[in-house]
Design a protein around this nucleic acid. Structure first.
Lengths: 368, 368
DNA sequence: CTGTTAGCGCGTTCAC
DNA sequence: GTGAACGCGCTAACAG
């Protein structure tokens, strides 16, 4: 039924070992025999048996790329870039010699599925694993992840982090490419403050996510540095009492549009006087903008809106979104090369990817 | 070094076969021994060797999902939905018993890479393959694809098409879920015509793609039915000569924003009098809208714009985009179930997924 | 319900 | 430069 290496060997009048050597190209083989073998391969439409090959060689050509949400271009861009570096163009011959199989796995943001996927990849003896996007900060999950990644690394799997901060115990990670979420968040809010905004709402991402926390911390750093959080002690001295400003001006949700909408409605309810809303990312900003418009307010005349990531659509919304650009494609490509062993890891295994402020039409000087 | 099934068997004081049975859950095993085995598995942190298992069983738990562009939510939504059905929630135990490994492969729209990925999946003895999105219509590639899919099916791989028309020779395909691109395209243009539009430009997708062709054909059907293409013979009878209207009012590009921008600039150059632009999809429509605005024209007062797919952002652009809704998530989920063998294929293996017109603010009665 | 016995198809020593 | 033999770790018959 299914044609095996032995069949090819018989047809080419060589030993199975020789066919194996031709296919893997790791040993010297006479040109004439190589041609004979390749012809036999084509004649028989032979396709290597991956499991058998992996079993004998104790390695596979699988490379897994984990993403939190495959429907979000934030991950799609990184994953696509990584695959570009891993998959090669393919020669269309259908032979696929020596190609790696770059596959992306969608965790949906669930810690359990993240671990399950890692186990599945471990089971396949994956050559490499790329983890993209923010990590969940639950201690139990972090410990489980560290343990799992250590085991993967032990088995020879290269582990690369892309857009995710390094692990506390990062021994098993080949390289961590971390985005400067904190710096980007800080500069974005500084921009708003420099325009004259003082009451700024923040539509944050889900709790216990590194990305959420770092962006929010950057924002709060800027707010505090400008003295814009007026808390507890201020009461009674004539200034308005803003007990718990930090908390009151922040609403958490998920990284999607409707969450941005809801958060903005809530922010406006808590503090009708805000003149700007900063969103956890561009998608959330879209929802924030919709909420503001539905309320009959104009952007940016009445309220400024800002996002994060600079996804392709951000330049197309009206007005175009002020945001923080992350070089997603470049980072993903680099992660792919790292996973392939085509690039040497940064010193210490850690690189911080800069974030660039992109000022567009959705932010302006506040009214009044 | 690496712990094997035999180690687990020794520790649990049973035979390797029993361990295998417990792990695969396919044969009856006494509860007490099962527990003993599972404890040994946990104690030893044992992870099944996938390649060895696949080799012995002649099947693997890999399921491949091919997409044309992983950064495009059109594909991300379908792929994510399929993975939901395939992957299960994962129990987080790290044991991952009997789970399938749903992986998405990004072809980037390249026929060569599509074939390469199929070969790689064939090599892995994938349990199923889901092909999403439009197919390339080049005859040579179609033949190669048919042959490859037949071989996959022969080897026991379930082949499912999602958002792609059935193959001419569809014997090897378990099920084909095709979107009603033609009907959707026709109804969209009929909507514009009913508003009073007569000169309508079309920013089409790439040539030789089924999706492109079907949507365009639907559009042209509506145009022709309304007598809006005035060609050759009309010259000299007092009506304006519109030689080759069909071609002149169509500009092809890729399925991205900048392509929509460029196409619209070209359409306006060829025919400044158009009152509406129909785009191949929502992303292209975004670019079209940008071109129109950059020209100082208003949407929809001066020019109406329409898209296709109804991606999540379409409701957020201003004005909200009139488009054709495709049930991407539902279709992807169904494809996933089909790939898992959890759902019986439609009669004849072919199902047409309806497309629903969504009228929003970007289309209106033409000026004048 | 459980143990025993054979391979699954290939990579990799070794010899030649 | 090439062939022969062995074993990778597991599942699938069979017995019992």
């Amino acid at each position: 039924m299914t044609v095996t290496l032995a069949d090819v060997a018989a047809r080419a009048r060589v030993s199975p070992a020789t066919v194996s050597r031709v296919l893997n190209g790791n040993y010297p083989v006479a040109t004439s025999t190589r041609e004979r073998v390749l012809r036999a391969v084509d004649d028989l439409d032979y396709v290597l048996n991956g499991p058998a090959s992996s079993l004998a060689a104790a390695t596979s050509d699988l490379i897994g790329i984990l993403v939190n949400d495959i429907a979000d271009p934030f991950f799609g861009i990184m994953a696509g870039a990584a695959q570009t570096e891993i998959g090669g163009p393919g020669d269309g011959s259908g032979r696929a010699g020596g190609e790696k199989l770059a596959v992306v796995c969608n965790t949906g943001g669930s810690p359990a599925r993240e671990l399950t996927y890692l186990t599945l990849l471990q089971r396949q003896r994956a050559a490499a694993v790329v983890l993209t996007g923010g990590a969940v900060e639950d201690p139990a999950h972090q410990a489980a992840m560290s343990a799992k990644l250590a085991k993967l690394a032990d088995a020879g799997t290269r582990v690369v982090l892309c857009g995710r901060p390094p692990l506390p115990d990062g021994e098993s990670v080949l390289a961590a490419l971390a985005f400067d979420n904190r710096g980007g968040g800080r500069r974005l809010t500084e921009h708003l403050i420099s325009l004259g905004h003082r009451r700024i709402g923040y539509a944050a991402g889900p709790l216990e996510r590194t990305t959420t926390r770092h962006r929010l911390e950057g924002h709060r750093d800027a707010m505090r540095a400008a003295g814009l959080y007026e808390d507890g002690g201020a009461a009674g001295d004539g200034r308005p009492a803003h007990a718990g400003d930090e908390e009151r001006l922040t609403v958490h949700g998920s990284y999607d549009r409707s969450s941005g909408y809801d958060a903005t409605v809530e922010l406006l309810r808590r503090e009708p006087g805000i003149t700007a809303v900063v969103a956890a990312n561009d998608t959330v900003a879209l929802g924030a903008a919709a909420a503001i418009r539905d309320r009959g307010l104009r952007i940016p005349e009445d309220i400024s809106v800002a996002g994060f990531d600079d996804l392709p659509f951000s330049v197309d919304v009206v007005p175009a979104l002020t945001t923080v650009r992350l070089p997603l494609f470049e980072a993903g490509a680099r992660a792919g090369r790292l996973a392939m062993g085509k690039e040497t890891p940064p010193p210490g295994g850690i690189a911080t990817i800069p974030a660039e402020l992109m000022v567009r039409g959705s932010t302006a000087v506040p009214r009044g």
